[in-house]
Design a protein around this nucleic acid. Structure first.
Lengths: 334, 334
DNA sequence: CAGAAAAATTGAACCGGTTCAAATTAGTTA
DNA sequence: TAACTAATTTGAACCGGTTCAATTTTTCTG
């Protein structure tokens, strides 16, 4: 059915190796045969089989991207960045989603490896015990770059200064006079969330304040989680004057809950998010995170390693986070 | 470096074919050798090379997904659906974005073919002249499913009843008393947009009304496009009483523009979108489109064809669109 | 316990490319 | 034109699996 290099060889009366050579632009072929081959390939619509090529060259021109959820603007924008750079290099990307499940993450990585990707970009779930699969990658010297560093693993990574983002946000709230602050944290598997929470606690305690447990929520990930947290807050007799949300999506959920009860942000509670997603129309004070740029950086770093060989020193890239003040935080005057 | 089947053969003293057979769960092997092979594979961490396997079996356990822009919730949700079903089948998906460029779309498809994907899901750009690449797929009998039918091409597809969606929306506006309606259409390459626009015109003209050219916009795709259209509308001395937007993202842009000028929806203009995206917190009247389900259906249909062979009759699946009335359309009383 | 049948294992060819040393052809030079 | 060099072209091995007819081993039967 499909035309192979041997077919072309037969048709042109040349050797397989000649066809291969010409098609790969190697020199040492007469102009005559070169044309003959090219014409035949063109005429019969020859499509090289990258699978076969990959088998001998060891390069599949393929990279794997393992993220948590493509539906989240954070990851879709990052993915776009990765794709764009990959395209420049003639690479195609396998998209895998861990769906926030650790076992799935491992399986996906395994699937990528068995498909012999030239490299991997992984946004790993943070699970205390089991980074074995990532250490394995290093041991097998598979080129890979992580989104977010993993303790003890000396690898390339791209990350955001989430601790500083958490700091900026908390200080901003303090400056605006807030003393009672709540925190809607993400899943415990999110490094970013942990860092932001840690920073928040640090900044507060430096002022002699604490994050009260009843104002601290966990596992906020999707819009509905934000809605639920919003509802809980509304139901409380006493509310924090401001809530820091793990990301804009969760913040949107909180806004939705408040709006549906006729409450207003920031009048009834101040709100802050992270990511600065494009689809935001609510004037949410948030933290800009260069996800698109990070996606590109991840891909560039990976290609650096793929083409640079196993001795390429690990790259660490940290992007700054930047507070974007809009109108969801009010000034508290006592 | 990497362990191969021949390595295992040497280590166990068995033949390559034995290793292969056991690893593929073929029967006809004694329990003793079976264990021996399995143990060795486990112990030395053997990872099968799907590339090599693909070369002989012709199955790469890989499908290609060509969409327009992963950043758009419509496509990211659809992608999630595709991924989920693919995962069930042990398949991995190549994600490609055409970035709304026809040449890129062709190149991406070509790239997928050269990587010998077992099948393709394509959300094709609608360009009058050149569907050749899709007809080619059929000619080469590559399994593929389209998102949206292509005129003259007898292939499997999954689509939404966009015409009916456009009808519902327009009739809803008419019922609410609107007579002066605007339309922010998507890119001319969008089938959905065309259908909706056509339906809108049809319904209006059945009532003796027309879509005025100055109220008809084209090329709305991202949030910023919506913002721009919103600004233009605000600047007009006379505005339509309602605007139908190609999708929720564009509608959000319009909302944003209005809000930033202190104007309100629906008081100052009614607004309707399409998609019913999750991230919507504005009470936008919109049309629900089951993108996630469609993604699953696309994948299922594709696997039906992949496993069913070339004689599998083309499947056509049409999902209904359903108006979701919220609060962005006011009732006009003359 | 020989002989036949059944079960288990093997070896070689193949998938569609790449690679490179060896062979062939063309071009120079004396 | 013979001899030598440079330019082309080729053939065989290899990449890591799968497949299946042929062979070897085991088990069963009379």
């Amino acid at each position: 059915m499909k035309l192979t290099i041997s077919d072309l060889a037969k048709m042109t009366g040349l050797a397989k190796s000649t066809i291969s050579g010409v098609l790969n632009n190697k020199d040492g072929f007469s102009e005559k045969t070169r044309q003959k081959v090219l014409k035949a390939a063109e005429q019969y619509g020859y499509v090289p089989n990258e699978i076969a090529r990959g088998l001998s060259t060891k390069y599949t021109k393929t990279i794997g991207l393992v993220i948590k959820d493509i539906t989240n603007p954070f990851y879709s924008k990052l993915t776009k960045g990765v794709q764009e750079v990959a395209g420049e290099y003639g690479y195609t990307v396998f998209l895998c989603s861990s769906f926030e499940d650790h076992r799935t993450e491992k399986e996906q990585i395994q699937a990528m490896l068995s498909r012999r990707v030239d490299g991997l970009i992984v946004a790993p779930l943070l699970e205390e015990v089991t980074f074995d699969h990532l250490f394995d990658l290093k041991a097998k010297s598979v080129p890979f770059v992580l989104l977010g560093s993993v303790p003890g693993l000396d690898s390339s990574y791209v990350e955001f200064d989430d601790y500083d983002g958490g700091r900026q946000v908390t200080e901003h709230l303090l400056e605006r006079g807030h003393r009672s602050i709540g925190f809607a944290a993400g899943l415990p598997t999110s490094r970013a969330s942990r860092e932001r929470l840690r920073a928040c606690r640090d900044v507060l305690s430096a002022r002699g304040l604490v994050l009260r447990t009843e104002f601290t929520f966990e596992g906020a990930q999707e819009l509905v989680d934000g809605v639920e947290i919003g509802r809980k807050l509304i139901a409380m007799k006493e509310r924090p004057s401001a809530l820091i949300c793990f990301d804009d999506v969760v913040a949107l959920g909180v806004v939705k809950a408040f709006q549906s009860e006729g409450l207003r942000i920031p009048e009834d509670m101040s709100l802050i998010g992270f990511d600065d997603i494009d689809l935001m129309i609510f004037p949410l004070t948030t933290v800009f995170i260069p996800t698109y740029e990070a996606g590109k950086a991840l891909a560039r770093t990976l290609f650096g390693r793929i083409f640079g060989g196993p001795d390429t020193p690990p790259q660490r890239i940290v992007f700054d986070e930047k507070l974007v003040v809009r109108q969801s935080v009010r000034t508290v005057t006592n």
